[in-house]
Amino acid sequence: MPDYALESANGAPEKSVVGLDEVGRGPLAGPVIAAALIFLTPPVAALATLIDDSKKLTAKRRDAAYAALMQTPSVRVGLGAASVAEIEAINIGKACHLAMKRALQHLGIIPDCALVDGNRLPDLGCPAVAVVGGDRKSLSIAGASIIAKVTRDRLMTRLSERHNAYGWEKNAGYGTALHMAGLKQAGVTPHHRREFAPIRAHLAGAAHMVGAI
């Protein structure tokens, strides 16, 4: 379970220590969403016990943790995104860093330190520490992972109402069997990442079929 040790080691709560995480690196459709989260005071036990790596939580527990975080006055959150067009223009790694940078900007705080999930650091304009597996170690990063995951899942559910062949409300844009079947049935949407290999292969196959007619 994540705890507050990394935040304390970097000077919190006397210094402002922000956790940063993103979701949406692997899906075939949809944007990358990042969240920046800071506990202005150390989280109370009742809140801390709700927080874990978002991938470990059920949807119900994620929603409960999301609501608790968003309703806690001592928690501040910033969100950032990188669009499909940006992912295709600059690559997924740079797009994730761009979303993180925007999340920090929207937080409205220039922190003394940022704890960033992963092994590479974006240019945030403040001191930062890369934390591999950070959403399993740091409450701030884990909280950010929950905010980002719930935000993105809800966005993909809204998109699925207009593009209902792909099951995005269930798979959040990942390349499940349902999603791939939807591609065969309904083709590629503007929300698909055309530079990702499965979408590129689908487009190449569709072009080949047209050319063969």
Rank of each mutant, 00 (worst) to 15 (best):
A165K: 00
G30T: 04
P43L: 12
L139R: 04
A172G: 11
M100F: 12
R200L: 07
V84C: 08
G93D: 08
A45I: 10
K149M: 09
G30Y: 01
H191Q: 08
D153W: 07
K15N: 10
K60G: 06
A12G: 06
V210T: 12
L155T: 04
L79V: 09
E88S: 03
G78T: 02
A82E: 02
A144V: 03
H97A: 02
K170A: 15
T49N: 13
G26D: 07
A204Y: 07
V131N: 03
K170L: 12
G11N: 10
E22D: 14
G108F: 08
L47Y: 13
T176M: 05
D153V: 13
H106S: 13
I109S: 08
Q185R: 13
G24H: 06
S8P: 01
G19K: 00
I110S: 14
A207L: 11
S160C: 07
P111F: 01
I141D: 00
S16M: 08
E161S: 11
Y66V: 02
A144P: 01
Y174G: 07
V32N: 01
K56L: 15
H208Q: 11
G19V: 00
P111L: 06
A29M: 04
D123Y: 07
P42S: 10
F196T: 06
M70Y: 11
R102Q: 14
G11H: 12
S83E: 14
G175M: 02
F39R: 00
A142H: 01
I33S: 06
S16T: 12
A207S: 12
V77K: 00
V17K: 03
L121E: 06
S145P: 02
T151R: 07
G175E: 02
